Computed example of a mutant assay.
Amino acid sequence: MATTVLRVRLIGGDRMDLTYDDPAISDQDALLDHIIATLAQDAGALRTRHGERLVVLYGRGVAAIEVAPRGAVV
């Protein structure tokens, strides 16, 4: 299972660090390709986590995504 931490910049200017994982994907690069492809769709949405909270991230509200080898830079 591949897991990554994304720093997401929203259109309104706010930033959030979210964790995304997918048990069906084991490769980090494939996971990132999946994230980009999903958010590029008109109705693209990802179920992510912010701490213990479930956050649904909709592609239409995302301005940018940052990914570092060990997660977002804090």
Rank of each mutant, 00 (worst) to 15 (best):
A24P: 05
A68E: 10
V74D: 11
Q28Y: 14
D21K: 06
L46T: 04
D22P: 03
P69S: 08
G51E: 04
G44Y: 03
L6K: 02
P23M: 06
A63F: 02
L18N: 02
A24F: 11
T38I: 10
V67G: 07
T19S: 09
L57E: 00
Q41T: 13
Y20F: 15
L6M: 12
D14L: 06
P69C: 08
R49V: 01
R70P: 06
M1V: 09
I25H: 04
A2T: 12
S26C: 10
P69F: 09
A68S: 10
E66N: 09
I11V: 15
A43W: 12
H34R: 15
G12D: 15
T3I: 06
E52S: 13
V74F: 13
D22Y: 01
L6S: 02
I35N: 02
R9T: 15
M16S: 12
G61W: 02
T3E: 08
T38M: 08
V56H: 07
H34C: 11
G59D: 02
M1N: 08
D17Y: 04
Y58D: 02
D42V: 11
I11F: 12
Q28R: 15
R53D: 15
L39I: 06
D17S: 07
A24W: 11
V8L: 00
D22I: 02
R9L: 14
D29K: 06
D27T: 02
G61L: 05
T4C: 12
T3Y: 04
R9I: 05
S26W: 12
L39G: 02
Q28L: 11
T48E: 00
A64C: 07
L54H: 13
I36P: 11
R70S: 13
R49C: 00
L18Y: 03
R53I: 05
R7F: 05
L57W: 01
A43P: 05
G13N: 06
R53C: 08
M1W: 10
D17E: 08
A40Q: 14
G71K: 02
L32V: 07
G59A: 03
A64K: 09
T19Q: 06
A24H: 08
V8C: 04
V73R: 15
R70D: 14
A63P: 01
Q41D: 12
G51F: 06
E66Y: 09
L46Q: 04
A40E: 13
A43L: 13
L57C: 01
D14R: 12
A72K: 00
E52M: 11
